[in-house]
């Protein structure tokens, strides 16, 4: 592989990593802070893509972004309401919303599974025109994404330092304590899921615009991919570090995931393996520390069985 190709590969990985990084930041809020595994992520990602694509195709590239985020807020609100006020278990609430969103997405796009956006004016095509005659003409996607992700990271970190942000973090850490601070955990969970789903939808919206194509299946498996990225980021920057560092770590995790995936594709791994790889990473990252703790115990019990089996027969 020539250095040129390697660089191009790195740039693509960085671009996609930044787009996905927004979903990873969403999970950073819901999974790491709020301690809720939001399984509606796949559907919400696609919802953001669908809404963003429709609004952009209608001729409003800038409006597509707040529109997609609002759709995400609505989706997060439904997921949160189901689990906090209607007695649906947290995981099930996500799955139910995820399933429902498929129909909603199909309905939104008029029963079309894909929406081509080749001729659509998007935030990326606008940036491309803007940077046409500058030395950065080839980096327009990267520049847009760097600005968006930097903005989201800064806003998210500022939000997490507010009283509401602290209450959201405390809800994931000790809900009893939130209640005794006269704050309703149902409220903090709802706000947290609305914000995180807004980021997921934004991620989907930008993905569709960057790929110049919307596909109803583009979000499938996204929750595992994002979780894998988040856990990779957690290995680089541990959970004992400051929140802004951890947020950056989450984005770096998304980039590394994309980089490894791109390299694997170069080495002739079929593209459909992406999801299997992300599943394996999630399993390793979550059960690795658990198994490491269990290992001495397992070795001991094996050792005991061995020593009792090897005792001489007439020993008693």
């Amino acid at each position: 592989m020539t250095p040129d190709k390697l660089l191009a590969l790195g740039q693509t990985a960085l671009e996609l990593g930044l787009v996905n990084g927004l979903t990873v930041l969403a999970l950073f809020l819901s999974y790491s802070m709020l301690n809720v595994c939001d399984l509606s992520t796949d559907g919400c990602f696609t919802l953001g893509a669908a809404v963003g694509a429709l609004v952009a195709i209608a001729g409003y590239p800038f409006l597509s972004i707040p529109a997609a985020m609002l759709a995400g807020v609505a989706s997060g609100f439904v997921t949160a309401t189901l689990q906090m006020r209607m007695g649906v278990q947290s995981l099930l609430a996500g799955i139910v919303v995820n399933t429902g969103l498929y129909s909603l997405n199909m309905a939104l796009t008029g029963n079309k599974a894909t929406l081509p956006m080749n001729k659509t004016v998007t935030v990326f095509s606008m940036a491309k025109n803007l940077l046409k005659d500058t030395p950065f003409a080839g980096q327009y996607t990267l520049i847009v994404m760097l600005i968006v992700v930097a903005l989201v990271v800064v806003l998210l970190c500022a939000f997490l330092r507010t009283k509401l942000g602290l209450a959201i973090r405390a809800t994931g850490s000790n809900a009893d304590m939130v209640r005794s601070s006269s704050i309703n955990p149902a409220f903090t969970t709802t706000v947290g899921l609305c914000v995180s789903n807004a980021m997921t939808a934004l991620s989907g919206c930008l993905m569709a615009q960057q790929q110049k194509n919307y596909d109803v299946n583009m979000g499938s498996g996204m929750v595992t991919v994002a979780l894998a990225s988040l856990l990779i980021g957690g290995v680089i920057i541990s959970k004992h570090r400051a929140i802004p560092l951890r947020a950056v770590g989450a984005v770096i995790g998304a980039f590394l995931f994309r980089l490894v995936y791109a390299l694997a594709l170069r080495l002739n791994m079929p593209a459909f393996m992406l999801k299997a790889v992300s599943s394996v990473i999630v399993v390793l990252a979550i059960s690795g520390p658990y198994l490491r703790k269990q290992l001495p115990l397992m070795l001991k019990s094996v050792g005991m069985r061995r020593s009792s089996a090897s005792q001489p027969e007439g020993g008693r």
Binding site: T162, K163, L164, L166, A170, D176
Partner: peptide, 24 residues
Amino acid sequence: RGTAPDMSIEENLALAAGNGGWLS
């Protein structure tokens, strides 16, 4: 049971104090 372990002493106290609006 009374404190959030992942948060700092200051952040725990800030919640108990509850001063200011949601975005303060």
